[in-house]
């Protein structure tokens, strides 16, 4: 009776576990042999990725992911873990690739690899319609909301390093903000809509997200010009250089043949796929 407990515990765990290979070197082989690819993305991030009216994943990132999968000759399966779980790295083959507007930063490059930048989005500052703020620097020392673990948060904390080729330089325009980090910056927009200064004075997020919110009746406006341009890359786990090379060539081809521009125009009305 006394031995039962640890025994049952082991059985329970062994029964529920599927012992996958944690060896990332074999990811491309696995994709090619199984003809399926698991791609992680966020379900909370319109218009890049979200659940559409048919309750399916949809959006700019999702279309890009589908196109990459098609060119790899694999069926795509979407997985929607939390952002911080993705950025923590060490995926152990739970998913093979992440197409979810991730900015390549030095910190992230320690645990993940970024084979290809596929578009650049402007990061902008939104304020309530009734706000008197007319330039970004006027928000210094005020309450600014954003998503936790995002580049926007790093920017607000003056800790952002972008090490992707072709990314324009930027400067920190907001001094000493009171940073309020939310689960996603969309939640921050929800707080900002309550009124100017009620909970937040401004939100830093991607310009497309802010514009989408305004389109949906949020009483917000964009302040000034974008604070930085975020290069956004396809992400894979460390260690499989063959996969890196393959993805890099696929994304390069998608840029040259205009596929990325087409998808960008479909979702944003503008071409974010090439550097301005």
């Amino acid at each position: 009776m006394k031995l039962l407990k640890p025994l049952l515990g082991t059985l329970l765990i062994a029964g529920l576990l599927s012992v996958n290979s944690a060896n990332a070197g074999a990811v491309l082989d696995k994709i090619m042999s199984s003809k399926t690819i698991k791609i992680a993305t966020d379900a909370n991030w319109p218009p890049q990725s979200f659940i559409n009216d048919d309750n399916k994943m949809d959006g700019f990132d999702v279309d890009v992911a589908r196109e990459i999968a098609k060119r790899l000759g694999a069926e795509v399966e979407f997985i929607t873990p939390n952002w911080d779980v993705i950025t923590a790295g060490n995926w152990y083959g739970r998913w093979d690739m992440h197409v979810g507007s991730m900015t390549p930063t030095k910190q992230r490059a320690k645990v993940l690899s970024f084979p290809a930048v596929y578009y650049y989005t402007p990061a902008s500052v939104a304020v309530h319609k009734s706000s008197k703020v007319s330039q970004v620097s006027a928000l210094s020392g005020m309450k600014i909301g954003t998503g936790t673990g995002t580049t926007f948060e790093l920017y607000l904390n003056h800790d952002l390093v972008i090490d992707a080729e072709g990314a324009p330089a930027f400067s920190y325009e907001i001094d000493n903000p009171v940073v309020k980090s939310y689960e996603t910056s969309v939640v921050a927009l929800d707080d900002l809509r309550l009124g100017n200064g009620v909970r937040l004075d401004g939100v830093v997020s991607s310009l497309p997200t802010i514009l989408e919110a305004i389109n949906n009746g949020y009483p917000l406006k964009v302040v000034g010009t974008p604070v930085f341009y975020e290069p956004l890359a396809v992400t894979v786990d460390l260690g499989d250089n063959e996969l890196n090379a393959k993805v890099a060539s696929i994304v390069a081809a998608m840029r040259t043949d205009g596929t990325l521009t087409t998808i960008s125009k479909k979702w944003y009305g503008v071409d974010y796929a090439t550097v301005k």
Binding site: N44, F50, D53, D58, A213
Partner: peptide, 8 residues
């Protein structure tokens, strides 16, 4: 948390 996101 997610379904309402697209249309806010």
């Amino acid at each position: 948390r997610t379904l309402g996101n697209k249309t806010f």
